Structure formats: C-alpha cells, structure tokens
Amino acid sequence: MWRSLASNMLTFLIVGLFLAVGVVMWGKSQYSVEGPLSDAICLRVERGSNMGKVSRDLEAKGAVSNGTIFRLGADYAEKADQLKAGSFLVKPGASMEQIVDQITRGGASTCGTEIVYRVGVTRTEARVRELDPATDQFVEIAAFDPTSEDAPEGYTAKRADADTRYRIALAEGVTSWQVVEALNAIDVLSGEITERPDEGMLAPDSYEVVSGADRTALLAQMQEVQELRIAAAWESRQEGLPLASPEEMLVLASIIEKETGVAEERGQVASVFVNRLNRGMKLQTDPTVIYGVTKGKGVLGRGLRQSELRSSTPWNTYVIDGLPPSPIANPGMASLEAAVAPVETDYVFFVADGTGGHAFAETLDEHNRNVAKWREIEAQRQNN
C-alpha cells in the first residue's frame, strides 16, 4: 500500500511539475507575444507610480491581456524598480516585454504635450502641441509670442501639467540680443539674464529644459556648445584662407548665415567673400550694414537707405576694408564649416534670383545682367 501511495504521490509531483513548467512557459510566451492593442495609446506614468498601477492602467486601455503576467515579467527581468515617469507612445501590437522595456529605459518622453519656444530671426514663438497617438502626428493647441502677447488658455492649462515637456529652439542667424530678450520672457525659466553674451557665441540648436531651469545656466550651455563648434571648425580649416583667427572665422560665418537660407549655397557664398578678401575687394554685404544700424536689436523692417549705405560705421562693408569688427549674428555649424571650407570658384558677385537663392557671377558684366533680371522679377511682383 505504501509503495502504491508513494508511486501515486510521485506521479502527482511529476504532473504538478509539468503543469508548473507549462504555466511558466505559457506566461513567458504571453509576455513576449504580440499584444492585443489595436490602436496606439499614450501611456502616462506618474512620478511615484509602480508596476501595479501601470499594469492596471494598461489592462483598462486594452494594451495587455493579463496584468499579473505583466508585473511578474517585469520582476523576472529585474526591471520592476526601474520605472520612469513620463508619457510613452505604445504602438499597436506592442508586447508586454516591449512596453516594460519602453517605460524603464528612460530618456525623453515619446508622446504627450510639448511646448516649444522657437527664438527666430523675426519673431519668438511658443507653440503648444500634443501627439495624437492615432496618427502619430503632433496637433497644435496654442501659439503666441511670449515677448509681446498674453499667454492663451491652452498654454496656461498645459503649463500646469506635471509631465509637459519643454524645448527651446534657437534659429540660425539670431542675434545675442534676441536670444536674451526671448529667454527673459519665457516663463518656464527662472532667474534673469542681465549681461548679453558676445555676438556669435551662442549655438543655434534645440535645448531640452525643465520647468524652473535657470536662464543663466542655459545661456552658459549655449556658449559652451558654440565654443566647441568654433574649435572644431577652426581645426578643420583649409589652408590658405584669408582668416587669421577663429574670431575672424566666426565673423565670416555670421555673414554667410545672414546672406543665405539655402543650405546648398553656403559654400558658394563663402567662396565669394573669400575671393573678395583675397583680392582686396570690399565685401559690400547688406546684412553687415543693417547690423551697424540695429546693433542686432530686432529687425530693421525696411530697406536700407542710401545714406546708411554711405555712412561710416564699423560694420559698413561698403566703406570699410575687410571684415567688420564682430559677428553680426549667431551662425550655425553649417555656416562655420562653409567659412573654413568654401567651394572653389572664381565668383566675386551674387544677387537674389527670385527663387529664394542667388545668381553668382565672376565678372561685373555678368553680375549686372543678373541684377537686371532680379529687378524685372521685383517689378513684376509689385505689379501683381
């Protein structure tokens, strides 16, 4: 009898072991198999949350088939205590394993609300936008100029959300005065900037910030990035350039930046100025004259007057020889690279061609023909 009982117990243990192994294998397959989610969702993980709360939220949204397996899988992968706060775009069919990896990896949130403060050459603008999980496209909620307009309700409401993300984007060609004015007007930042950095020493780029970030520290970050870019560009410069220092390179890069917004033209524009410097010709570029009038404080908003083209200022390159004494804006990396590696041409003239780009010329006669074409285009536009 005891032998029979022992045999039956052993049988039960073996069957139980196989069942346990089967359950584990089934759970592992459920953890890694494609999930039931049919439409993308934005999963918000609050600060101080845990895998239990997240699993219940995912179950309610139909993103996981079994919250217990989700929690056990996170425990088994030793990721249960690595949960990160934020908003995460969970795509259709995402497995539990993929979702756990996504919400424990960290880094920038992939959905939710983002406020972008764009510091542009003509305007500073705050844009509130939110990702629509169904289309994976951002939908604009509000937009305004924080330097001159009151904040709309769509902005103030999203500013109150704890998981709203913030980004400050400096456009290429903005002046240091414009950057300081904009940063002091952006209410998500703290502190006050009282001293304007040297012209050209702020790197145009996109900067992630958090609510309460210090303005002076952010400005220092922009300067540090620009210093690294200047050093890298100067290190890679071509031989024989008419530039005696990184400072002169920065001045030339700022002129290139203001002369063209067409990326493919930067090397040609750079070649014109390098050729003029090598031949002892005056640069004769309007943006430098404009800087002499405005000192970088905003946009001129009109054409240059003949008196301004003849006036004697340190930045009037129709009057002075060589480069002006300082940059006229903050150039981006592409303009720095163009300044130290211009395209090899014999061009010494260029004028707008009506398409947003320029027509380049080697001789004055050719240039005059290009100017005549441009004036015809201008006349046609005025008559239409």
Rank of each mutant, 00 (worst) to 15 (best):
T194K: 10
A244I: 13
N184R: 06
R237I: 15
S206K: 15
I255V: 09
G292Q: 03
V174P: 00
Q238S: 13
I193S: 04
A231E: 09
M222T: 04
K258N: 02
R159E: 14
D286N: 09
E257D: 11
V251M: 06
D163L: 14
P152F: 02
A203F: 06
E259Y: 03
E227P: 05
A233Q: 04
A171Y: 05
R237T: 15
E208G: 15
A169H: 13
A263W: 09
G240P: 02
D187W: 09
M281V: 03
D205I: 12
R276N: 03
E195T: 15
N275Y: 07
E227Q: 06
A162P: 06
G200I: 04
E259K: 03
A232L: 08
A253K: 00
D205T: 08
A157L: 10
W177Y: 13
Q221A: 11
I256R: 01
E172W: 03
T194R: 14
R159T: 13
Q268S: 12
E227T: 12
R237F: 14
V269Q: 03
G261T: 10
A253L: 04
S211P: 03
T194W: 14
A253V: 09
Q238D: 15
E257M: 08
E264C: 07
M249H: 02
E264H: 13
Q178K: 10
R165W: 07
R215C: 06
P197I: 08
E227Y: 14
D205Y: 11
V210Y: 14
L202I: 01
